[in-house]
Design a protein around this nucleic acid. Structure first.
Length: 425
RNA sequence: GGAGACGUGGCUGAGUGGUCGAAAGCGCCUGAUUGCUAAUUAGGUGAACGGGUCAAACCGUUCCGCAAGUUCGAAUCUUGUCGUCUCCGCCA
């Protein structure tokens, strides 16, 4: 959520930002409503002041008669205040409805453009796409050949889009997790295993819409809980309502969680196999920082993502996301797209990580602040998130890039200590 | 799952309808004092929002887990809800 005062005072910039993000939002209406709200609020406050003053006098009244007359006066004022307040609350809700729709201000350096066609490739990984001298299989064919992936069983027990991982692929999955966690721990991240469910209010604070026709989120009937779509939700909710000490920042966390997504309306060749599934495991980085630290932290997260994919020998490109393709809370977003030789006709880039600087957008709604010692008042922290490994997609990248002519798959060297062998299959 | 107790400021903890944004202690900050790695002493010390100011000072409103209710008036009474603790049950 953007600061209301900021919107009010910078309406033109906010409007331009909405245009850049390809959204049409009634910013002018919000400004008008806010103007009305402010004057009404002042009037209500005045009435309350008067009513409070009268009420205080009642306690000190000399006799019953005086007391009763004061009571009548106080009640009248109080009723007026209540009436005013009800109007105020209606306006407040209208403002909030618009305010929640307004996206974060895009970073000045983010490429401007209305959709993903304007995304800017900024760099490539250390590994180049391989030239294969044999017929390439995609990860699903490979997985089924070795009985590593069982979508049929998943469909039988749970439904379409669910799967069992089996055998050596499980070892590879766990090895990726171990490698990511040990790398991140060495770089100052605190490893966390988070709940896989969260309060709807937390989902909303992070910027997810937990219920409604277009939701990507599974919710639990009869509760206000939903299955998380990413550990970003729980790691961001961790300090909701808290005021952190300036000297404790930045806080760097890495969460292991399952992620659940309904993927409503997504299907087709492009999402064959593990690419788009209802449940996967993800190692997620999350950081709370001071405002002037967040750009550097964003850079750090992006670099870690690159290092993690360089380490497993997967070719990738880094994309600076265009304004029109940014999610609401993000000010800037970098994606890593890994080369997936089995995807499409002759291989395609597929998104494997994403790191966003959400500045104070999430912190404002979740009410996460920091305080400088010796200074009055508090400020909102900045929050950032980034994927270390989304296991399902990292597995695709490894299987497809490291396959051999005999259908075996070479295990990246850094993973061998955990897998226990040089190749699988 | 059943029964009970509790939820107050950075912490401990008093407060059962008005003078309570809230005693006291600890912690922290500032000053004084004593030549000794600290003691003594005086004062100060929550947040959000709105107004005000160049900036402050200052003024108002709200906040005692959260929400709703009773009342002229709620930390205090009622209901709901969430959380914590204890006992019992069940269980990996």
């Amino acid at each position: 959520m953007l600061d209301r005062k900021f919107i009010f005072e910078n309406a033109d910039a906010v409007k331009q930002n909405c245009v850049n993000r390809n959204l049409s939002i009634k910013v002018d209406q919000l400004v008008a409503l806010e103007t009305e709200r402010r004057s009404k609020a002042q009037a209500v406050q005045d009435l309350n002041t008067q009513a409070n003053a009268k009420s205080k006098l009642i306690g000190k009244a000399a006799d019953d008669e005086q007391r009763e007359s004061l009571k009548t006066e106080a009640k009248k004022l109080r009723d007026q205040k209540t009436a005013g307040q009800e109007e105020l609350e209606k306006i407040e809700q209208q403002i909030l409805a618009i305010q929640t729709l307004i996206p974060n201000m895009a970073h000045p350096a983010a490429p401007v453009g209305k959709d993903d066609k304007a995304n800017l490739e900024i760099t490539k990984g250390k590994t180049s796409p391989r030239v294969f001298d044999f017929e390439v299989l995609d990860h699903l064919d490979l997985g089924q050949h070795h009985d590593w992936i069982d979508f049929e069983g998943g469909a039988r027990t749970t439904g379409a889009g669910f799967y069992f991982l089996k055998g050596d692929l499980v070892l590879l999955d766990l090895a990726l997790q171990q490698f990511a966690i040990s790398t991140l721990t060495q770089r100052g991240f605190i490893p966390m295993i988070t709940p896989d469910l969260a309060h709807d209010s937390v989902l909303e604070g992070i910027g997810f819409n937990p219920r409604g026709p277009e939701t990507q989120i599974y919710s639990i009937e009869g509760t206000n809980l939903s299955l998380i779509g990413t550990a970003e939700i729980t790691l961001g909710g961790l300090y909701s309502g808290k005021t952190l000490a300036e000297e404790d920042l930045p806080i760097k966390l890495c969460g292991i969680s399952h992620c659940y997504r309904t993927e409503a309306g997504a299907a087709g060749r492009a999402s064959r196999g593990l690419y788009r599934v209802h449940q996967f495991t993800k190692i997620e980085m999350f950081a709370y920082t001071l405002p002037d630290q967040s750009d550097a932290m964003h850079e750090e997260l992006r670099q870690i993502e690159c290092d993690l994919f360089d380490a497993i020998g997967v070719p990738y490109r880094v994309v600076d996301t265009a304004t029109g393709d940014l999610g609401g809370p993000a000010s800037r977003k970098f994606d890593l797209e890994a080369w997936m030789p089995g995807r499409g006709e002759a291989g395609e880039w597929g998104e494997v990580t994403s790191t966003s600087n959400c500045t104070d957008y999430q912190a404002r709604r979740l009410n996460i602040r920091y305080k400088k010692t010796g200074e009055k008042g508090t400020h909102f922290v900045h929050t950032l998130n980034g994927t270390a490994y989304a296991l399902s997609r990292a597995l695709i990248a490894i299987l497809e890039n490291h396959q051999e002519a005999d259908r075996s798959v070479i295990v990246p060297e850094v993973l061998r200590p955990w897998v226990g062998k040089d190749k699988i299959g």
